[in-house]
Design a protein around this nucleic acid. Structure first.
Lengths: 258, 258
DNA sequence: CGGGTATTTGACGACTGTCAACGCCAGTGG
DNA sequence: CCACTGGCGTTGACAGTCGTCAAATACCCG
């Protein structure tokens, strides 16, 4: 189960932060799509910075304050909550374009942790600047609310799956969700997808154990629905998977595109 | 499990809708707390109405469009998602003061259903009016985003519980959550609370079966932590419950108070 | 080659689900 | 007044999905 023992590589700020960090925002991030350039300027003028984090590196930790928001530019990030006994629940996998660090109690301790699963590039900017930006651009605030609402609905979907679906259905659902989100970002090769996550991570995302995840992957393989070796997923029978998992493709696709 | 057979009492609009429905908003609903009166006026001038729904009555249904938002004035409402095979996951229990019907895709079909668990009184107002109100009052929009963010975090807590806690821990958590939310609304009598929910509902909220919920209630009783008869909960040992359930009281209390 | 991590598999156990019976209670109709 | 019915709660017996433990394999990297 959870609890990778405590190695946490320090966060590294690039020595020479991008001068035009907004470019990655505008290019990659739904949040800023179509927002007038002048509303973004403050981000640049103050101390926006690009952050690079190695795999296993923590971006922020549950229970600790965190002064920044982040837009994920490249790589995979997992957001998770921990229980005292070492158990862990992955809340979601963040992909390029996602917005991280937002929570209701802006200045309070974070309610979850964020860890890089691959080498990760983030644009980070202080919350007070973000606040000014949101104040200056109601459109931006609306966008943020919309993004958050969608994440919320995705969380509800996961709650439904975890509470009321069998192990094999949950795994099928997770794989389909990741596949379709990645396809929308053009991170797939045909019907194949290289995943950066261990089976233990799938377990922590679905509420199962690593051993049982392994068994379910084998079952899906034996049913001819997927191929899975060396973390490379090939979806062989998407429709059958979708039926099995009660998976509605449209929802997740929208979610990625926003 | 889920799937009460299909009786759905029709929604009833009161023949004489409150002329000052805003009063219940302002009194009961965090959303409108402290918002300038003139921003609320449109709600009244147009066709805000009070809605009364009998127990088991559906307020809106997953998959169907719904033109209104609602503020819950009195009674309990459950929000849930259904699976094809009759299984059901309760997403949350809404209490007086809660805001219902908001979702990202404003005009699309609802992503979940809402059912009254008690006689329920709602203030309902059309989404287009709400939109104007939010446009007129950025403060109001911020408030909505904040409320939504908190519901989101509560959903994440439930995901953690459902994915990574044992049956007895989940039941303890659910009971504590309901108790503390109700206490913040002064719906408790001392350390007692009359719940309007069946054990089957607890099951659908925690991802268990009704039979097993019953066994867990008995265990909690045998441990001396609660008394539970005729849907009346008495919390005998809150601290022990909180430890068992990994329950952080402050979070849920804030949630109720906003 | 050695050590560490991830995956895979088997054996076993237990937590939770399933099925069924019974009791209680309220409502209903004869 | 009293069967009859349906919903809910309670309990027991049993089954099975899933967790636990352990060992073997594979792989990576120094």
């Amino acid at each position: 189960m959870g609890g990778k023992s405590g190695f946490v590589p320090p966060l590294e700020l690039r020595p020479q932060p991008h001068t035009r960090c907004a470019e990655c925002h505008v290019r990659a991030l739904a949040l800023f799509k179509g927002v007038p350039e002048e509303h973004l300027e403050p981000t640049q003028r103050f101390r926006s910075a690009q952050l690079v984090v190695a795999p296993q590196g923590r971006i922020y930790l549950e229970g600790e304050p965190n002064p920044n928001y982040y837009t994920l530019y490249e790589g995979w990030v997992m957001l998770y909550k921990s229980l005292g006994n070492g158990k862990r629940q992955i809340l979601r996998f963040a992909l390029p374009g996602d917005f991280l660090g937002f929570q209701r109690d802006v200045n309070g301790p974070m309610t979850h942790s964020a860890m890089a699963m691959t080498p990760v590039t983030l644009c980070c900017f202080p919350k007070e600047i973000a606040r000014d930006m949101f104040a200056a651009s109601p459109d931006l605030a609306t966008r943020l609310a919309s993004i958050n609402a969608r994440q919320y609905e995705l969380c509800e979907l996961h709650l439904l799956a975890t509470g009321r679906k069998s192990a094999i259905e949950r795994i099928a659902f997770l794989l389909l969700e990741l596949f379709h989100r990645c396809r929308a970002l053009e991170l797939t090769q045909g019907n194949a997808l290289q995943l950066p996550i261990a089976q233990e991570d799938m377990a922590d995302a679905t509420g199962l154990t690593p051993v049982h995840v392994n068994r379910m992957l084998r079952q899906l393989r034996e049913k001819g629905m997927i191929d899975y070796r060396d973390r490379r997923l090939v979806v062989l029978d998407g429709p059958a998977m979708a039926t099995l998992a009660n998976f509605n493709q449209s929802f997740v696709e929208e979610a990625a595109l926003l």
